[in-house]
Design a protein around this nucleic acid. Structure first.
Lengths: 218, 218
DNA sequence: ACAAAAAAAGGTAAAAATACCTTTTTTCAA
DNA sequence: TTGAAAAAAGGTATTTTTACCTTTTTTTGT
């Protein structure tokens, strides 16, 4: 067993829940809860004073500063501190957002104490704790499919070709050349798409293309 | 045990490797290799004829049509067929690209037969097989950090604010209002950034912002 | 308190993007 | 084969973007 205990911070707006967790963690003698905070704001205040924390157990829905913002804030300033998201809900978007914000894992509040304990240890050791809940959702997010517009062929091949070319620094004149069209024809494509997609600028079209996975920009 | 065997297709440009795998899979009597292909092109040809495949074991580096394209093609036309990427290399980008293309899992060619067998079964049952290799890389990709430009404060707060506003359909005039600046000042920001980032259009700036995770566009 | 640097604002002109139309050509289904 | 629809091309005008400058104001380090 390690000499040093794992230092935990609890961030959750329900004091009763915090107490419950703190009490539960007291069972494990290599874990020590060093402080609690009722929300992200409070966490920020405390963290600027006390920094000897290894893992923060972070709720998501909290007043003032929520779990996403708090996690981003923590990871930016104290990258060595690990964050384990602890949430009531098995919600796809919440999981993805917390991971993107920098959380190393995500477990449900209804998990068994043993899973929490294991998660804390893995996060402390490897920085990440990935269960099936999380990795499945990550893959889903990776593979999230194109929008209906695309799937149902509401855009022609040629329109898609045009849109892809728009996601670049080419001018429309250059796009026309690339498509072997007169500049005027390219303007037809643009206007037609602007009308149908309710856009008012090329940047809008670019954002549409990226959102709908017509292009991959990485 | 299931009545029906799991139907496997092997796609790899090394015939010897295919034979090896085929031979190995013969050990498992709930698995049947229904055909082999030397590359994505060949797979496409065979697949338009024979469709009774459950899982395709797909190599990545192949001539004519590689594993990424072949996987996209398969998942678009036959979404029920699962793809398990089978690669020589533990390469971050390759893993991510295969998963984004639609693969349900990724294992190394140096894996033990038992892992391959387990992967095939899980893919067949759940559509996904995620080992630590893969889920770790997914998280890394999620959390991949901002570029040095951003990290090292080579962009001012105000510049970042400006860039974020550029990722929208606002005109520069409107951006100026939003930033409480004269239109001319906004043009200074633009020109300064264009110069430093070697850009020639706002779309370029938008792509820069997305690539560097200044904005999240989903 | 001062010089230097950065931010904000302005001038002018050209190129590109946007809007709103019409006409010609091609495609394709009835 | 014909006629309706879609694609391609053109006309014209306005707004926006881009480029290349200068000047004024504010910030900042010393």
């Amino acid at each position: 067993m390690n000499q040093k205990k794992i230092h935990i911070a609890l961030v959750d707006d329900h004091s009763l829940f915090r107490s419950g967790i703190a009490n539960l963690l007291r069972e494990f003698n290599d874990i020590k809860v060093v402080f609690e905070a009722a929300n992200g704001k409070e966490l920020q205040e405390i963290l600027t004073e006390k920094k000897e924390v290894d893992v923060i157990l972070m709720d998501i829905n909290m007043p003032l500063i929520d779990g996403y913002l708090a996690t981003s804030w923590v990871k930016k300033r104290y990258p060595k501190i690990h964050v384990l998201a602890l949430s009531m809900f098995d919600d796809d978007i919440a999981v993805i957002k917390m991971l993107k914000a920098g959380a190393g894992g995500y477990i449900l509040k209804e998990s068994k104490p043993q899973e929490l304990y294991r998660a804390i240890n893995e996060i402390k050791e490897k920085g990440i704790y990935l269960n099936e809940l999380v990795s499945g959702k990550m893959l889903k997010d990776f593979q999230k499919s194109k929008s209906l517009l695309i799937k149902e062929n509401l855009l022609s091949e040629r329109e898609i070709e045009f849109i892809k070319l728009c996601v670049s620094e080419l001018t429309y004149k250059e796009i026309a050349e690339a498509m072997n069209l007169a500049p005027k024809s390219v303007h037809n494509y643009r206007e037609h798409l602007f009308l149908r997609l309710k856009l008012r600028s090329r940047v809008g079209l670019v954002m549409f293309a990226i959102k709908n996975k017509l292009v991959d920009i990485d």
